[in-house]
């Protein structure tokens, strides 16, 4: 676990002791947390089909990145990608409708939880294949470079993807072509059902160093540190500095997927969860900055109202029709 050094902390708070920025980050994290808690409940009730992978405990990373990315920037995400989608700007109602398999979902109910994508928001898709987002982000970065969009491509990946060959290829190619790409590793210590320490021997930062890519490893549960660091890295990349690697150390609270009892895991691992959980940490910092409990409670009420409304809208939304889906495998003629 990296230390939360004082420089990072002061930089995060730099320029203001006003709580507005952190409050916005907190609200985004809260929205992701409550959304996933709702999905967990809907999944258990059979209202969310298939299987879902929750990012509870890791919301700070998606939120921190989402706060510094622009609409023109693109992201490639993972199977644990609900937070990435929402933080990048996928609209909450169409998100719920997708995960609940509705025609009005952002992907018309054809992809579900593991394939939420929104091209208009620069969200190139969650992905069911571990590591597959990396070359996609590399290609997207290539497009930003060739088209001179000024955009940056970000790939989120878990530590379980470290042993995928495409990571090494993608680091190499992005370094070779000095692409505007940011590799964000959400290191929660678990590769599906196995500890990553038993799967991969090289620290990511060293690996990045081998490719000549600047890398930073930070506390992945402190949203201010993440937003601050990511903002700096994105700015460097946008200026043509080439790719960067950002490793965020975090924790996976839930199982690999919902329904995974995590019998392979020592319960003590999550004993001190509240101390590291990004939400209470942000809340106590807000308290220090003078935000009242009443305001946080009001925020909670507001977020829950949004989620309740999104849930109800998804329940009421139409189910997809087969014929329209079948006709959409290829671009229709004249389109």
């Amino acid at each position: 676990m990296p230390s939360n050094n004082a420089t990072s902390r002061s930089r995060a708070a730099k320029g203001s002791n006003k709580p507005e920025a952190l409050l916005a980050l907190y609200r985004q994290m809260l929205l992701i947390r409550r959304t996933e808690e709702r999905l967990s409940q809907l999944f258990a009730d059979g209202e969310v089909p298939g299987f879902i992978h929750l990012s509870i405990g890791q919301e700070a990373i998606a939120t921190g990145l989402g706060a510094v990315l622009e609409r023109r920037d693109t992201i490639a995400s993972t199977h644990r990608g609900h937070g990435h989608a929402l933080a990048k700007g996928v609209e909450l109602n169409s998100f719920f409708q997708e995960v609940m398999g509705r025609e009005t979902g952002v992907c018309k109910g054809r992809g579900g939880s593991m394939h939420v994508a929104d091209m208009s928001a620069g969200m190139l898709g969650a992905n069911g294949i571990v590591g597959a987002g990396m070359p996609i982000a590399v290609g997207s970065a290539l497009a930003h470079q060739v088209r001179k969009t000024g955009g940056v491509a970000v790939v989120f990946f878990g530590d379980g993807a470290l042993a995928e060959g495409v990571l090494h290829e993608s680091l190499n190619l992005s370094a070779l072509w000095e692409l505007p790409a940011l590799f964000v590793c959400e290191n929660n210590g678990w590769s599906e059902f196995s500890p990553t320490s038993k799967q991969f021997v090289a620290p990511l930062a060293k690996l990045a160093d081998a490719f000549g890519i600047p890398a930073e490893t930070i506390d992945g549960n402190d949203v201010e540190i993440i937003a601050d660091t990511a903002g700096r890295l994105i700015s460097e990349i946008r200026k043509g500095g080439g790719p960067r690697v950002l490793e965020c150390i975090t924790q996976r609270v839930r199982g690999h997927y919902e329904g995974d009892a995590q019998k392979y895991r020592d319960p003590a691992e999550l004993k001190d969860r509240d101390k590291i959980d990004p939400l209470p940490r942000a809340a106590s910092r807000l308290s220090v900055l003078g935000v009242s409990d009443a305001l946080l409670a009001a925020l909670e009420t507001e977020v829950m109202a949004e989620i309740d409304a999104a849930t109800e809208a998804a329940r009421a939304a139409p189910l997809p029709g087969f014929a329209a889906a079948q006709a959409d495998v290829y671009t229709p003629a004249g389109a």
């Binding site: 693109t74 190139l124 997207s140 290829e169």
Partner: peptide, 24 residues
């Protein structure tokens, strides 16, 4: 617009996917 790549077939084609999604 015309680039030599390393010998990385998975990433060559994967990058083509991302590039195509981003306007190329």
């Amino acid at each position: 617009r015309v680039r030599d790549t390393p010998i990385s077939e998975a990433t060559i084609v994967g990058a083509a996917v991302g590039a195509a999604m981003t306007g190329l």
